[in-house]
Design a protein around this nucleic acid. Structure first.
Length: 170
DNA sequence: CTGAGGATCCTG
DNA sequence: AGGATCCTCAGC
């Protein structure tokens, strides 16, 4: 949260969006694409951290994730919202704004050379991190594994927001 | 081979 | 609340 997702577009333009909303997909998590084992689509989730996982859904949208844990442990973070970029609230809109498709799945995002990378950032002192159930899933709704910066314009407006509470009230 | 459902988004 | 639109995967 607060880091910058950076993308060099095919025309050379660089866009930087501040990450303000994410969801975690865990080992043993029935809502995770990796839950039923490796497939052609999800195989990069089973690889090392710092790699993009992008999938196509609903016949028209792409969603961008970052693989997070060690090789062989299939976890990822879905990036759901960015500030500082127009029309980048929502995972499908992020991929549209940054021109990301499954072509960019499986690439190393720890280097600028890939054209897709993350730069360091942290939340500001006056920002509150909220947690809520994840959006758009039909199982494992009991887990508060969605995180967002309260009040940021890049955060999705959704019914789950009314269930949100501050992270530091754990 | 088939069918159901989907980590979404827009409109009304 | 419903539709767009098609890929993926489980099941047979």
């Amino acid at each position: 949260m607060g880091c910058w997702l950076c993308r060099r577009l095919p025309n050379g333009e660089v866009r930087r969006g501040r990450i303000v909303e994410v969801e975690a997909y865990m080992v043993g998590d029935p809502a995770s694409h990796a839950f039923r084992g490796p497939t052609k689509r999800n195989r990069v989730m089973f690889g090392p951290a710092g790699v993009s996982y992008i999938y196509f859904t609903y016949g028209m949208h792409y969603c961008f994730n970052i693989v997070t844990e060690v090789d062989g442990t299939p976890t990822a973070i879905l990036i759901r919202g960015l500030d500082n970029i127009e029309n980048a609230n929502g995972p499908g809109r992020i991929c549209k704004a940054l021109e990301l498709t499954t072509e960019q799945s499986g690439i190393d995002i720890t280097t600028r050379d890939s054209g897709l990378w993350v730069e360091h950032g942290i939340p500001n002192e006056d920002e509150t991190i909220m947690v809520s159930p994840r959006i758009g899933i039909s199982v494992a709704r009991e887990h508060f594994w969605r995180f967002f910066i309260n009040g940021s314009p890049g955060v999705t407006k959704n019914a789950m927001n009314k269930l949100a509470r501050p992270l530091d009230e754990e």
